[in-house]
Design a protein around this nucleic acid. Structure first.
Lengths: 347, 347
DNA sequence: TTGAAAGCGCTAACAT
DNA sequence: ATGTTAGCGCTTTCAA
């Protein structure tokens, strides 16, 4: 046993992986060659059942588990995909992430998640860290507006799919919800219920969906031949304080709005809370569905977060399977769910 | 250029990593040694600024990015941690996961997420896959009740922290919410408002928190000297249909309950929906806070999901930093948030 | 059926 | 300041 692999380690200072047994150790213990262990571990044919048994015993005895880091290095595939989103704690992204995970799992891949916190620098840092790990593919909900930093990676073979928002300054597969159409139909719904002065409170203008939804708002107003007062439009942070102020401003005007369109789930929540403080019956339609919105009677334009994730992941794995199509853009429909708040007539 | 590394590849069939340039390629292009490239890439000292510039140029020109798979193999640390939870789409786990991510990020580590879907087999499969990847540490919200399969891994040096629910049949660091105390105070709150017949609707009895909360319920009843009728207790799946049936049954009895305690967020949501269909004013306290519960006036026993995640992750990284303490159990407090539904008097 | 040898791309140790 | 060599633990290739 003097030349046991353990004793010949040159670098005992750093206990690698807690000094786990390797295939070499298993081979030594079972009295077989390294490759035979590899065959057993991977279920490859060409091993007699007797040899296999001996190897299995050695594996059990030593508590061996294959080191996938080495396998990955050798095989050149990590069987993992990265998902960079804004914030996993946002109820919109949880289901999206879960849907991606399910598709990845069906393809035998693990999912590495990262939150950009809506910071373009952090997005890039995360994406490149994932590229350094050689994830097979990447799904990105972009925070930034310029993704040229990804060009070398894509050329090198990383598959990338953008979801929820489009890529900036590069061509790439993209899966979006129909923000424009959804907002347009939501605002049209308010107009159909008699409203003529409608406020729009949305996310920051550098976010694509915010701009698209505003465009939908304007289109609906124009379709109905209604004028739009700049005071009825407020884009900015989704911080409650900012949203509250916007609501207050629009309702305090000499000719106040009689209805509001909220640009996303976080805005909607704050608007609902703010309106609950007042007597005035202001109509409301929000973009994104929210848990318990049914009980509160909140009319929403719902998008299917899970479908976004699933569609993006399926596209990604088709790319990984080698399809050679030009980058495509998919747009998923939204659904107007009338629950009361959007059907209130003007005061 | 005849002996360029590219041309001597033995395995061109499988385009590894899309045939990305390696440090060797960069070294050849910059006319320096491999180790010099490594020094530049890792910001190590001992490189003249002129050499560094040439290396940087080669890196840019080739679009080189360090292959962390190789680095990981060599260094024996993956700088990643795994988190196995029940379902990332559940609003309770999103914030928990995000909190873990933030701590991991502060330690330079990435987070690999996996959902067990409350299936012990899937939990084990995920955990072992993460061990094979040699994640530095693991945070587990267990679905199963027997974690002896982790013993070899823990002996081999993987740090594991259990959160939200304790490990089964092994000793391990654990971070829990005070389910017993929280439920007890929630039920005591209902009793203090005059209720004597109180129903308990909880999750499946194989889930530790469900049992603990039921124990809290019983303790509160006993503290008040109140009898408990078995018909007032219903444990099982959190499927809406099952919960609806439980509510219906308890309210249809000859001596119906006048208040309900809901064992977790999913149960609460369904109970609220079910009660909204009836005229009878049934009091309700739910375990877990829910978005918009404030507007619906739902009294809850709130636990801090982010704090659970943060505490568990901090414990994990202290383990990775080498502390040698016996496994400990932390228990985080809950908070009763009165909003109306729990203060309704008996009908 | 089995195994020896080469090498994935990097870093550690040791020259120069 | 820079380079050379020897692995990390696995899979691939090829020979026995």
């Amino acid at each position: 046993m003097a030349d046991n692999a353990r004793t010949t380690r040159r670098t005992p200072a750093t206990a690698r992986y807690g000094n786990r047994p390797t295939m070499k150790d298993v081979a030594a213990r079972a009295g077989v060659g390294l490759k035979t262990v590899s065959r057993v571990v991977n279920g490859e044919p060409g091993v007699t059942s007797d040899t296999e048994r001996r190897v299995q015993e050695a594996i059990e005895a030593l508590g061996f588990r294959r080191n996938d880091s080495a396998r990955i290095l050798r095989k050149g595939r990590t069987a993992s995909v990265g998902l960079v989103l804004e914030d996993l704690a946002d109820p919109f992204y949880g289901p999206l992430s879960r849907a991606v995970e399910e598709v990845a799992r069906a393809h035998g891949a693990l999912l590495i998640n990262g939150s950009s916190a809506e910071d373009p620098g952090r997005e890039q840092e995360l994406v490149l860290a994932l590229c350094a790990r050689r994830v097979d593919g990447l799904i990105v909900i972009p925070a930034g507006a310029d993704h040229r930093y990804l060009e070398p990676e894509i050329r090198a073979g990383v598959a990338v799919v953008f979801v929820d928002r489009p890529a900036g300054r590069i061509e790439a597969d993209t899966v979006l919800s129909d923000s424009f159409g959804g907002a347009r139909s939501g605002v049209a719904h308010l107009i159909a219920h008699g409203h003529r002065r409608i406020g729009f409170i949305g996310d920051q203008p550098r976010i694509h969906t915010a701009v698209e939804r505003l465009r939908g708002y304007r289109a609906a107003m124009e379709d109905a031949g209604l004028p739009v007062d700049d005071a009825w439009i407020s884009l900015g942070s989704t911080e409650p304080a900012r949203v509250r102020q916007a609501v207050t401003g629009m309702l305090a005007a000499p000719e106040p709005v009689t209805a509001l369109f909220a640009g996303n789930n976080r805005v909607t929540v704050t608007v609902v809370r703010e309106l609950a403080l007042r007597d005035r019956p202001v109509a409301l339609v929000g973009f994104d569905d929210i848990e318990l919105a049914d009980l509160l009677g909140i009319t929403v334009v719902a998008q299917d977060a899970a479908a976004l994730g699933r569609t993006a992941a399926e596209r990604l794995f088709r790319r990984l399977d080698g399809i050679q199509e030009p980058p495509a853009r998919a747009e998923l429909p939204t659904a107007l769910v009338a629950r009361g708040s959007g059907e209130r007539p003007p005061a």
